[in-house]
Nucleic acid binder design. Structure first.
Length: 524
DNA sequence: GCCGTCACG
DNA sequence: ACGTACGTGACGGCA
């Protein structure tokens, strides 16, 4: 950083386009009008010997590219640097908090150096910026007609349900209002609210689906409300919202993939959020079918199999868990077989379900109550199960203890690539705040390392296959839109790049799927 | 602008 | 008796 030429810059926009560029170099500041200095500006930004410092370079890369200028490496994004230094705070998100000059960049550099973040910054986060810019520019194609038809069908169903609910309630009310639902079912119809949870902030009776489920038998209105909720949610959030976000010029949806939001290092997606498109329910899956490939192309999706549990196995070095992954058998069945000491073929569905719940629980900082709930077992059984699990997987137990101890002494935990997250409340005198911080400290290295790995894969794919179209990242999954004539060779290449992005103590496996739309895909 | 709710990994 | 498994974003209601 010291030997190369450094400039810091900020564009001045007019109608969303670049009008001029403010350049800071050697403490001098000058403003260049783009129309009069196009070649000069282009030469500076495309010079690979100049370090370009700016704030939120993904946005700037897209804006400059629209003008015919590539912002080439090396780059220094103050936004991302501030984020890496403290991903838990939201201060850095204000552009004003990170002044766009070279001195600021030097300070951020020093801070990253002290926290051991330079490799992560230079080798992962900076190269990722242009990959994300491309994904956003690529966008994704939507079947608008399909969604419009679906909207009409849903509209009719919702209206029908509304009438039914009003009839059973004996009055008209807003079913979208939890307060009004509460009044109807607990006060008017007088369904017993015994055992129903309270909401976290206002301590009022909850009408969440998980609570209403328990009241299904009590009155027929409950089922109708649950069904209404599901349909209304899907219609308002996806079916009606997605077509509105289609770009008029490209006819595609260009969401944001945010690189400096989450505490753990994951990306987030917004406007629209393409990382929470339904898949679980039958109706939800229908919505996924609206995501389609262009004519002559096909969607190809790759997801990391059990990546977080593999990371736990690798970080902890637990021999039994590592052996389990090396055996290439279903990991939860394998866990169940070991915990109960029965052969693989004698593992029952219930045994596998509990094993799956505890394997998941380990990633989040398990507690007996949470396990009891997710595994559908008693509190006592959960306590017993956890103790059995940890006596079997000693390595995992020790690793979790060490992670907690480090979080207490250092105030942070970190991923395989040194991504840190601080836990100011880990030494709080309030027990539940401390417990919450402990769980975050345990989860961060796992979720964060998975984020590191897929980011590395994205960079490698972008480098080796620059001409293919990456369109989505969903935490452990990448989706591409590929020419039908080309996909066979390319898919094998992508899978290999993802599987070999990082070497762990266990094999990293990637499953591929292919289809004309994102809803029904078949295994490759 | 917060809250409750619910979609995803 | 209770806040009781991690991380997100969007919607509608309500003040």
């Amino acid at each position: 950083m010291d030997k190369q030429k450094i400039i810091s810059f900020r564009p001045i926009l007019k109608d969303g386009k670049i009008n001029s560029v403010v350049l800071f170099s050697d403490r001098k500041e000058k403003t260049l009008l783009l129309s009069k200095n196009f070649n000069k500006i282009k030469n500076i930004f495309e010079d690979t010997k100049v370090l370009k410092c700016g704030f939120d370079l993904k946005e700037l890369i897209k804006k400059f590219r629209a003008e015919g200028i590539e912002i080439k490496d090396p780059i220094f994004d103050c936004f991302i640097a501030s984020y890496l230094i403290n991903p838990g705070t939201r201060e850095y998100k204000k552009e004003e908090s990170v002044e766009k000059n070279i001195e600021t960049a030097r300070e951020l550099w020093k801070e990253m150096s002290r926290a051991g973040l330079l490799d992560l910054f230079q080798k992962i986060e900076m190269p990722l910026i242009s990959v994300l810019a491309k994904i956003e520019e690529n966008g994704v194609k939507i079947n608008i007609e399909y969604l419009k038809k679906m909207s009409e069908v849903f509209d009719k169903k919702i209206k029908k349900l509304k009438k039914e609910i009003w009839k059973l309630a004996g009055e008209e009310f807003n079913i979208n209002s939890p307060i009004q639902i509460k009044k109807i079912i607990f006060e008017k119809i007088k369904i017993s609210s015994k055992g129903i949870k309270k909401t976290s902030k206002k301590n009022e009776l909850s009408t969440a689906a998980s609570e209403l489920e328990r009241l299904r038998e009590a009155h027929p209105i409950i089922n109708f409300i649950l069904e209404y909720r599901e349909l209304y949610k899907l219609k308002s959030t996806y079916i009606d919202a997605l077509p509105e976000l289609v770009d008029k010029k490209t006819k595609r949806i260009h969401a944001n993939f945010n690189q400096a939001i989450t505490s753990t290092g994951r990306l987030s997606s917004s406007n629209p959020n393409l990382q929470n498109i339904p898949i679980r329910g039958d109706i939800g899956r229908e919505i996924r079918k609206a995501f389609i490939a262009e004519k002559g192309k096909i969607l190809v999706a790759f997801d990391y199999s059990q990546i977080e549990l593999r990371i736990v196995a690798s970080l902890s070095g637990d021999e039994k868990m590592i052996n389990s992954f090396n055996s290439h058998e279903d990991i939860h069945t394998r866990t169940a077989s070991e915990v109960w000491g029965v052969p693989l073929n004698e593992v029952t569905k219930d045994m596998r379900r509990s094993a799956k719940a505890i394997n998941f629980g380990v990633l989040y900082g398990i507690g007996p109550r949470g396990l009891a709930k997710s595994a559908g077992i008693s509190h006592y059984e959960a306590v017993d199960f956890i103790s059995k699990y940890f006596s079997l997987y000693q390595g995992i137990k020790n690793y979790l203890e060490e992670t907690k101890a480090l979080a207490y002494s250092l105030g942070y935990s970190e991923t395989l690539f040194g991504r840190r997250r601080y836990f100011p409340e880990i030494n709080s005198s309030i027990p539940y705040l401390r417990a919450a911080a402990e769980r975050m400290a345990i989860n961060h290295p796992v979720q964060g390392t998975a984020a590191d790995i897929i980011k590395i894969a994205m960079i490698k794919i972008n480098k080796e296959l620059p001409n293919i179209r990456m369109i989505l990242q969903v935490h452990d999954e990448l989706v591409f839109e590929i020419k039908k004539t080309e996909y066979k060779k390319i898919t094998k290449h992508i899978k290999e790049l993802m599987e070999n992005a990082v070497k762990l103590k266990v094999p990293v496996e990637v499953d591929g799927k292919i289809g004309d739309n994102w809803g029904d895909m078949e295994k490759i």
